[in-house]
C-alpha cells in the first residue's frame, strides 16, 4: 500500500514516465531483441543467436570503425574541453557585467540547424574554401591544404565547434559555484596564480569538467552526420555503419548488435571517467 505522498509522487511522474517508457525503453528493448535475431533476406529469423555479436566483435572492419569512432570522439572531447575551459573561466572570472548576454552569445551557433553548420565548415575548410583562399591570398601557403577536409581532422574540428557550448556551460556553472574567498585564502597562504589554479580552482571545477567530458564524449561516438559530410572515406565512424546496416544493407540485427556494442563500450568508458573524476576530487594534492 502506497503512502499518500507516494501516490501523489507517482501521479506526478506518471506522464513523463509513460512517455519515457514508450519512446525510450521500448525502442531500446526492441534494439536489444533485434540484436539476437538474424536477417534472412527479406524476413527476420527470430531464433536467438549470438552470430551478430560474433561478427561485430571479430570482423576487422567493425573493430576498425569502433576504434576510430572512439579515437575521434576522445579527441573531440579533449579539444572541446580544453577550448571550453578558458572560455568558461573568462566568463566566470573576468566578465563582471552582462554575463547573461555572453552566455546568450555562446548559443548563437545554435540558431541555425546542425546540418547547416556542418555544411558551413565544409565551405570554410574546402579545397577552394574560405580558409585556403584566405591563407593563399595572404601568401602564407602556396597551394591549398588538403589535410583539413574529408578526413579525421575535419570531423574533430566540426564536432568540437558543435559541442563547445555543451562543454562551456557545465564548466562555467562549476566555476561560478567556487566561493571566491577560497581563492583569496589560497593566495593569502602563499600561492601564486598558477599554483592556486592547480590546487584550488581546477579541483573544484572538476565536477563541471567531468560533466562536460561525458556530455561531449557520449553523443559524439554516435554521430553520423558530421563524418558523412566532412569525414571522407577515412573519417567514417561506427554510426555510419549502423545506419548502413539498418538501411541499404538491410541487416537490422547486425546493426542492432553494433549499436548495443558501441553503447556498452561508451557506457564503460563513461563509468571509468566518472570514477577517475571522483578519485581526483577525493585525492589531496
Amino acid at each position: 500500500m502506497l503512502s499518500r505522498e507516494g501516490r501523489q509522487g507517482l501521479t506526478l511522474i506518471s506522464p513523463p514516465l509513460l512517455y519515457a517508457l514508450l519512446m525510450l525503453a521500448a525502442p531500446l528493448a526492441m534494439v536489444v531483441t533485434f540484436s539476437f535475431w538474424s536477417q534472412n533476406y527479406l524476413d527476420l529469423d527470430t531464433t536467438i543467436t549470438l552470430k551478430n555479436y560474433r561478427d561485430a566483435w571479430t570482423k576487422p572492419i567493425y573493430r576498425v570503425l569502433i576504434m576510430r569512432s572512439l579515437n575521434i570522439s576522445i579527441m573531440v572531447t579533449i579539444v572541446t574541453v580544453l577550448l571550453a575551459f578558458p572560455m568558461a573561466y573568462f566568463l566566470s572570472f573576468r566578465v563582471k557585467r552582462h554575463k547573461a548576454l555572453w552566455l546568450f552569445l555562446i548559443t548563437i551557433p545554435f540558431w541555425t540547424s546542425y546540418l547547416l553548420r556542418v555544411f558551413l565548415w565544409k565551405v570554410i575548410l574546402g579545397y577552394n574554401g574560405v580558409l585556403n583562399s584566405a591563407l593563399m591570398g595572404l601568401g602564407l601557403i602556396d597551394e591549398p591544404m588538403t589535410f583539413i577536409l574529408y578526413n579525421v581532422n575535419a570531423v574533430v574540428i566540426t564536432l568540437a565547434h558543435a559541442w563547445a557550448p555543451f562543454a562551456i556551460l557545465p564548466i562555467f556553472v562549476a566555476l561560478e559555484r567556487i566561493d571566491r574567498s577560497l581563492l583569496e585564502a589560497a593566495e593569502d597562504l602563499g600561492d601564486g596564480p598558477v599554483r592556486r589554479f592547480f590546487r584550488v580552482t581546477l579541483p573544484l571545477a572538476m565536477p563541471g569538467v567531468m560533466a562536460a567530458t561525458l556530455i561531449v564524449l557520449i553523443p559524439t561516438v554516435g554521430d553520423f552526420i558530421t563524418p558523412k559530410l566532412v569525414g571522407g572515406r577515412e573519417g567514417l565512424m561506427i554510426s555510419n555503419m549502423i545506419q548502413i546496416q539498418f538501411g541499404k544493407a538491410n541487416n537490422a540485427p547486425l546493426g542492432a548488435a553494433l549499436a548495443i556494442t558501441s553503447m556498452v563500450i561508451v557506457a564503460s568508458i563513461s563509468l571509468v571517467i566518472y570514477m577517475a573524476g571522483r578519485w581526483f576530487r577525493g585525492r589531496t594534492p
Binding site: 574567498s181 583569496e184 593566495e187 593569502d188 600561492d191 601564486g192 579541483p203 589531496t284
Partner: peptide, 22 residues
C-alpha cells in the same frame, strides 16, 4: 606586494575552508 608575499594571514568571515581537502 601581492597577498601571497606578505607576512600576514587572514581568517575569513566565511572561513574559506577548502572543501576538497581534509
Amino acid at each position: 606586494i601581492p597577498a601571497n608575499k606578505r607576512p600576514t594571514n587572514m581568517v575569513f568571515q566565511s572561513y574559506a575552508i577548502f572543501p576538497h581537502l581534509s
